[in-house]
Simulated assay, not measured.
Amino acid sequence: MNILVFGKDGQLGKAFAEQLKAGQFNQDTIRFVGRADCDLANTQHVSDLLQSFQPQVIINAAAYTAVDKAESESELAFAINAKAPETMASYAASQDVTLLHFSTDYVFDGTKQGSYTELDQANPLGVYGKSKEAGERAIVQAFVKGAGQYAILRTSWVYGNGANFIRTILRLAKERAELRVIDDQFGIPTSAQWLAELGSQLASSLANKQFASGIYHAVPVGEINWYGLAQLAVQSAIEAGATLKASSGAISPIPASQYPLPAPRPMNSRLATNKLQSELERLDLVSKLPHWNTPWDKQVTAYVRQLLAD
């Protein structure tokens, strides 16, 4: 089974590389594609790669994720986040193959009280969210009359092997005695490793036409704001032996209005996972995902400890 993974240079792509190489897959049939291998902003490049490799499973872990920069690079953001997935989906639907695509909490405006479900209306605030939502719509439309299978996994606050909020906070805590972090934006930190573990299982089930095509929310158990996440990251690092200038108590909460950025962010990024949970239980896949029910805070603590150990 040929597996084509887009986004090998990103946090999620790197996690998939580890997961798939450790799994029961023929390594000769897996190809990981990065920026140097395929220009996702060029539709012809994407199409040519698909035609030449002829994958049975396409995993799109790539995206234009520079949220603020997207406000001035909308054409590039839409090319990578909407047009490239549309090309992948059109190929998959026409060739009866599987597409696993990752999307974001930014497709919502964040005004809902409580967790968003897959039935809630998307209403992105900025260019990044709009481009990702356009990609979702293009994928769904491509498979309306197609023969393949697809899953779109919306997730939030991803961290892994690469630049992310947790790494930034730990760096700043080494440099400064006091930190100020937003406390009125809520979401769920999600490990790239956790996502890749889940995605690998789903890709296999999709390819076997067991998993139902559709949009799903994929985040761990729990919720937090950026301030709480920063406190946990710093406290976990100190407990693991790190020497920092700032303690968790030296972090002050501030409203988002005191930290203006070019692109608007959803104030509420909480995602309900009931739909995905039900599908996993139906296929008896929960037992194959040992970290599925591990709360976000335990995963973050383990991640921080691993960072210090490396």
Rank of each mutant, 00 (worst) to 15 (best):
1 M>L: 08
3 I>C: 02
9 D>E: 08
14 K>G: 08
21 K>H: 12
26 N>K: 09
28 D>Q: 14
33 V>E: 00
34 G>H: 04
38 C>T: 12
42 N>Y: 03
48 D>Y: 04
50 L>V: 07
56 Q>N: 13
64 Y>G: 00
65 T>A: 12
69 K>L: 14
70 A>Y: 06
75 E>R: 14
79 A>I: 07
85 P>H: 02
89 A>Q: 05
95 Q>W: 10
97 V>C: 15
97 V>A: 07
107 V>D: 00
111 T>P: 02
111 T>R: 13
115 S>R: 15
121 Q>N: 10
127 V>R: 00
128 Y>C: 09
132 K>N: 07
150 Y>A: 01
151 A>T: 02
165 F>W: 04
169 I>K: 03
170 L>Q: 05
178 E>Y: 12
185 Q>S: 11
187 G>W: 03
198 L>F: 02
203 A>N: 03
208 N>Y: 10
213 S>F: 08
214 G>D: 03
216 Y>E: 04
223 E>F: 10
224 I>R: 03
230 A>H: 01
236 S>K: 00
239 E>V: 08
241 G>E: 03
246 A>Y: 03
247 S>T: 15
248 S>K: 14
252 S>V: 13
257 S>V: 11
261 L>A: 13
285 L>P: 00
296 W>C: 01
304 V>M: 04
305 R>K: 11
306 Q>E: 11
